[in-house]
């Protein structure tokens, strides 16, 4: 595929995913495993694309829960840059991930800019409401933020993908080993931030033993994620039965 077309498509994808059209749909479009599918289709190398996507997903898995919509890092920007570049340069997933981390951080600032500028449209909507112009409110809620989003999101991804692999390869070659290793460390620690945020959101300190149980079920008993989901759910349901009795489950409404 021509690099120009690929860069345009990735720019458009990033814009559309970050547009957040469809509350729980777009939040999945932002995830590296889903970006991997898109890159796989346009690059023709589905397997490597999905492998890099999966590796990157692990870094950002915990960062899905964002109270108040504040992203602590942007998996979509990282994915829209690292996956296509990684696939084109035939990088190992680890190197592509190291490449992605700085972009994930950059994405935070882009989103803060968007949400600051979006305030303009609320004031426009105030004026439309004064005139009972419902069409105007709909435009302020959908069309104008979409145009703004395109202006601040498309160029970043387009430019980096277009300038392309050669620049990135050179950059990676000049980076010292200790810097690359520090990226790997960040990649290893960042999920901890995501999980910590999630635990904080759940906000039940007294239930922390369940966190410990889940943790050591993997360390000692070698559970995989599916096994943990099954046993975790059963434990929760059994405890609910004990604590709340049967009537809590059966007398619905």
């Amino acid at each position: 595929m021509d690099i120009l077309i690929l860069a345009i498509l990735m720019g458009l994808y990033y814009w559309f995913a970050r547009l957040r059209l469809g509350y729980t749909f777009s939040s999945m479009l932002l995830q590296p495993v889903v970006i991997g599918v898109f890159v796989g289709i346009i690059s023709g190398n589905m397997i490597l694309s999905m492998q890099i996507g999966a590796g990157l997903q692990l870094v950002y898995l915990g960062v899905t829960s964002t109270p108040g919509g504040n992203v602590p890092s942007d998996p979509a920007l990282a994915g829209c840059i690292a996956i296509p570049l990684g696939v084109l340069a035939n990088m190992s997933p680890e190197v592509a991930i190291a490449l992605a981390i700085p972009f994930g951080v950059l994405g935070v600032f882009v989103d803060q800019l968007r949400r600051t500028l979006n305030a303009i449209f609320v004031h426009m909507a105030d004026r439309y409401a004064e005139k009972a112009d419902t069409g105007g409110i709909m435009r302020a809620a959908f069309v104008y933020p979409a145009i703004l989003g395109f202006i601040i999101r498309f160029p970043v991804v387009f430019a980096i993908n277009y300038l392309g692999e050669s620049v990135v390869q050179q950059l990676l070659a000049t980076l010292p080993q200790w810097l690359l290793h520090s990226f790997e460390l960040m990649g290893g620690i960042l999920p901890a931030l995501g999980f910590a945020i999630t635990i904080k959101v759940i906000g039940k300190n007294s239930l922390m033993p369940f966190f410990i149980m889940g943790y050591f079920a993997v360390v000692y008993l070698k559970f995989d994620v599916m096994a943990a989901a099954i046993f975790g759910t059963c434990i929760a349901l059994l405890l609910k039965l004990i604590m709340f009795g049967k009537e809590a489950t059966s007398n619905a409404k």
Binding site: L58, L61, G62, G188, I189, P191, A192, F195, T198, I199, I202, K204, L207, M208, F210, F211, I212, M213, G214, Y215, F216, A217, V218, V219, F223, D224, V225, A228, A229, F231, G232, T233, I235, A236, L239, K240
Partner: peptide
């Protein structure tokens, strides 16, 4: 909450 915390533990052990 129980499922969530149990899973957070499992995911932490698997991915950090």
């Amino acid at each position: 909450n129980v499922i969530g915390l149990f899973m957070m533990g499992a995911l932490s052990a698997s991915y950090v």
